[in-house]
């Protein structure tokens, strides 16, 4: 996939957040995303995933990080691998090769989701305006992952390794505009000033 074509790709949205927000909000550029399904008790499968991703196998509802890659526990038989956009097909091929002996599925879904970053001391309160999740310190920390809903949109929310107040929120791409607008509304500094 050539650079020129990538430049033509429609960004998830106009990624400039308006003024007056109580947190930092950004739409993230495309990244490699792989849906990986397999038997977590299958040593061959697990070692293939760890070798290709460089990440250690995450615990339940956790994400692990290694360089530009991160590996997310999505369900008892599903992982999500984040990495460099241009390497997605290579990652799929490498997984298929290394886990050839296992019943598994690895598929490139790098174009299927929108990702937003919400960061700042009030970020957890902004997300809790729509997600029925306890984001309090002590309940939700670095590397924690939660699949839930924001309003009625299915989302995944990860606290990244960057710092303890940075969340990445992802949803199916078609809901991106809606979720972006929702986040802008929920991150209004006036709706956060009296919280926390």
């Amino acid at each position: 996939m050539s650079e020129s074509n990538n430049a033509l790709a429609r960004a998830p949205r106009d990624d400039t957040a308006p003024d007056g927000l109580g947190v930092q909000l950004a739409a993230m550029p495309l990244r490699a995303m792989l849906t990986i399904r397999g038997d977590f008790a299958d040593a061959g499968f697990v070692s293939a995933v760890e070798a290709v991703s460089g990440c250690t196998m995450p615990d339940v509802r956790k994400a692990t990080f290694a360089g530009n890659n991160s590996l997310l526990w999505m369900s008892p038989d599903e992982l999500m691998l984040f990495g460099d956009y241009a390497k997605a097909d290579d990652l799929v091929a490498a997984l298929n090769e290394k886990a050839a002996g296992s019943h598994m599925l690895a598929v490139n879904v790098s174009d299927a989701r929108a990702v937003f970053k919400v960061s700042g001391a009030k970020a957890r309160y902004a997300l809790a305006k729509g997600a029925p999740v306890d984001f309090a310190q002590g309940s939700f920390g670095t590397g924690d992952l939660r699949r839930t809903r924001i309003a009625t949109v299915a989302t995944g929310i990860v606290m990244t390794a960057e710092d303890p107040d940075t969340f990445e929120v992802f949803c199916f791409r078609s809901y991106g505009t809606y979720l972006w607008n929702w986040l802008i509304s929920a991150c209004d500094e006036n709706a956060l000033s009296d919280l926390g």
């Binding site: 305006k129 809901y175 991106g176």
Partner: peptide, 19 residues
């Protein structure tokens, strides 16, 4: 209703060609 009114009333899905 909360903030689910106006453009946030209900999620809308758009294809990449929407614009």
């Amino acid at each position: 209703a909360g903030r689910e009114k106006g453009i946030l009333f209900k999620p809308v899905r758009e294809t990449v060609m929407h614009n």
